[in-house]
Write a protein that binds this DNA or RNA. Structure first.
Length: 226
DNA sequence: AAGACGGGGAA
DNA sequence: TTCCCAGTCTT
C-alpha cells in the first residue's frame, strides 16, 4: 500500500485515460506537429540520434538541422569514423555540442558492437552510454514497440497542470509523476499518444504562456490559468 | 539535490 | 535581458 501522496488514485487514472484519448484523437485529426523523424520507416539510427539532438533543444530547431545532419552522417559508421572535433564543430549551431558529440560517439561505438541494436530491458538500457530515462523509454517504444511514456519536461508539465503538481524537483524521482505518465500511455498507439501529449504541450499547454482559451481539455484541467 | 553544458528563438 | 528548449552526467 503506497501513501496517497505517491499513489495514483482511481479518479486520477480516469482523468488521465480521458486526457490521453482526447489528445490522441486531436492528433489523429491533424492537430499536432509534423517532423521528418515521425515519418513511417524512419530507421532506428535516426530516431536515436534525433533524441540526442532534441535534448534541451526546440524540436523546430532540430527539424531544420535534420537533413544536414543525416546527409553528413548517414549511419552509425559515419558517426564512429568522424573525428570528434569535426563532429563537435558540426553540432555547434545546436548548442551543447561537446556533450552531444561525446554522446553520439559513444552511442555509435555501442551500436557498432551490437549490430545497431539496443537492449530490450530498461535496466540494461540505462547502462548504455548517453542513455538516460528518456532515451531508454524512447528506444523501448520505438525499437521494441513497448508501451512506455516519453517523460520529458513537456509531458511532466501537461500532467502536473492537468492533475496535480509533482512533489520532487527531479522528474525521474517523483513516483507519482512516473505512474501518471505510465498510465497515460496505457491505451492506444504509444507513438500517437506520446506525440499528442508533446504537441499539446508545445502548442497549447506552453510553459510560458499557456493558451487555456483554446485548450481542448481545459474544462477538466486543474490548472485554470485565465 | 544542484551545476554544467550552450546556441538560438521568443517574450 | 531573461526564460526556455523531446536530458544526461558529474559534484
Amino acid at each position: 500500500m503506497s501513501s496517497p501522496d505517491t499513489a495514483l488514485g482511481t479518479g486520477e487514472k480516469r482523468k488521465l485515460t480521458l486526457l490521453a484519448a482526447d489528445l490522441a484523437d486531436w492528433y489523429r485529426q491533424g492537430g499536432g506537429r509534423s517532423f521528418p523523424w515521425r515519418e513511417p520507416g524512419t530507421p532506428l539510427y535516426q530516431l536515436v540520434c534525433v533524441e540526442v539532438l532534441l535534448q534541451r533543444t526546440r524540436a523546430e530547431t532540430v527539424a531544420s538541422f535534420y537533413n544536414r545532419f543525416f546527409t553528413r552522417f548517414p549511419g552509425w559508421q559515419d558517426l564512429a569514423e568522424a573525428p570528434v572535433e569535426v563532429l563537435e564543430e558540426f553540432l555547434r549551431p545546436l548548442g551543447l555540442w561537446k556533450r552531444r558529440a561525446a554522446s553520439l560517439r559513444a552511442l555509435a561505438a555501442y551500436a557498432a558492437e551490437h549490430d545497431g541494436m539496443f537492449p530490450n530491458r530498461y535496466e540494461e538500457l540505462l547502462q548504455v552510454p548517453a542513455v538516460g530515462q528518456y532515451v531508454a523509454h524512447a528506444i523501448l517504444m520505438f525499437q521494441h514497440g513497448e508501451r512506455f511514456p516519453l517523460i520529458d519536461v513537456n509531458m511532466a508539465r501537461v500532467v502536473e497542470r492537468f492533475v496535480r503538481p509533482r512533489k520532487l524537483a527531479d522528474i525521474r524521482h517523483d513516483p507519482w509523476l512516473q505512474q501518471a505518465c505510465k498510465w497515460l500511455v496505457r491505451r492506444g498507439d504509444p507513438k500517437t499518444v506520446n506525440w499528442s501529449v508533446l504537441d499539446h504541450a508545445a502548442l497549447t499547454c506552453r510553459a510560458r504562456n499557456p493558451d487555456c482559451q483554446s485548450c481542448l481539455v481545459s474544462s477538466r484541467c486543474a490548472f485554470k490559468a485565465v
